[in-house]
Simulated scan of single mutants.
Amino acid sequence: MARVICAGHVNWDVTLSVDRLPVADGEATITGQTHACGGSACNVATGLTALGDEAAILGSVGDDEHGTRAVRNLESAGVDCDPLVVTDGETAVKYLVVDPDGEVAILGNDGGNEAFAADDLDEADIAAADHLHLTSQDPETAAALADRAHDHGLRVSFDPGRRIDARDFAAPLARADLVFVNEREAATAIEDHFGPADDLEKTVVLKHGSGGAEVLTPCGHYASHHGFSIEVVDTTGAGDAFAAGFLSTWLDGGAEPDFDRCLAVGNACGALAAAERGPHAPLSRDRVASLLDD
């Protein structure tokens, strides 16, 4: 069992199920509505605890009802919220609009989800951890956190998310030992930040959604997994669930992880997430094992 610090955005998510994603000057009917704590750091942390690992979260929420509910959600999932920063501002709220095919459009404000700094993480918290997982956040904060983690001998993973084209993540990408990207993000990251695919200096996990995922390592090792055939309900948080499953297995593998197993578990977690509404996948070791055995 590993202990992972997840750093990044903590939001309050309002998921609206609609009969269609509206076009400009169009209208859609809301068929369902749910509320939950969200944000990539939150989703990975709750995924890890559901799989039996320990997770602490570093992020920031406002001193408001949304922030209080977000913390309550995290604590009920077993996430250590001691590093979480509470600010005087508003908690970031995201509205996730999901169509019947599981496709998602997102509206939101940033609120106070980048009010935390690298030095908000206590030395004792870093010393007690086995790994640092960075998600989309202020690049300077991410880079400083990676440096502090490396000083304590921790490995660092980074999932830059959809903002990779809009923010300069060169520094945290350079410091990460393991990077998660999807196909669109890889088009920018592989050449711009990592160099040619056949000369990588870090391990890269390339996510293909329903098409599975693959791993490329600095030593030239390659692994792939085709994914699982499921009925997609909501893709929100599926990539984060994948990261939680991959990390849990990777950290359990020691110096020589079984990347085939990491991909299989990650894809199983992503599939379980995509088959349910909302950002929090109903993960468990038993559910993953059942899907792997099918």
Results as ranks from 00 to 15, higher is better:
A197N: 08
A144K: 02
P139W: 05
T135C: 11
P160E: 12
L173Q: 04
T217H: 09
D199I: 13
P139Q: 06
H150G: 05
S224Q: 05
A186I: 05
Q137Y: 01
V215P: 09
D165W: 14
G161N: 07
D151A: 08
V215I: 10
H150S: 12
V215A: 11
E185C: 08
G161D: 04
R175E: 13
D130R: 02
Y222C: 00
D192T: 04
H193K: 06
T203D: 04
L206H: 03
H150V: 07
H225A: 13
D168E: 11
Q137L: 03
E140P: 01
D168T: 15
D159G: 08
G161M: 15
V205E: 12
H131P: 00
R162E: 04
S157E: 04
G212P: 12
L206A: 06
A128L: 02
A127L: 01
E185S: 06
S210H: 01
L173V: 14
A149I: 04
A187Y: 09
S224D: 09
S210E: 01
A124V: 00
R184P: 05
H225N: 11
G209R: 07
F169W: 13
L200C: 14
A170H: 07
H221Q: 10
L154D: 06
E201D: 12
F194D: 02
R162M: 10
R175C: 11
G195E: 08
A143W: 03
L132V: 03
E185W: 03
T188Q: 05
H225L: 12
K207M: 13
H133C: 02
A149R: 04
R163M: 14
C219R: 10
H133R: 04
E214V: 06
A189W: 00
D165M: 08
H131S: 01
L200Q: 13
A143H: 10
G209K: 10
D125I: 00
L206N: 03
D192I: 11
L134M: 08
V179R: 05
V156L: 12
G153L: 09
A189C: 06
A170R: 11
D138P: 03
P196H: 12
A171E: 13
E140D: 07
A129N: 00
P196E: 09
H221N: 11
A187V: 10
P160N: 14
H150P: 08
D151N: 11
D168K: 10
L134V: 15
A176N: 00
G153T: 11
A142Q: 08
I126M: 00
P172T: 06
L178Y: 03
R175F: 04
E183S: 13
A197S: 13
E191D: 07
D147Q: 06
V179Y: 02
A149D: 07
E191G: 05
L206T: 04
D130I: 01
L173T: 05
S210N: 03
G209I: 14
A171L: 04
E214T: 07
E140Y: 01
C219E: 15
P172Y: 08
K202C: 11
E183I: 14
A144E: 05
R163S: 13
A197Q: 02
A187K: 15
A129G: 02
L216Q: 09
A142L: 13
A142I: 03
L216G: 08
S210P: 07
A187Q: 10
Y222R: 00
P160Q: 09
L134E: 05
F158M: 10
D168Y: 08
A170G: 15
L145W: 09
A187E: 14
H225C: 09
R163V: 12
A176W: 00
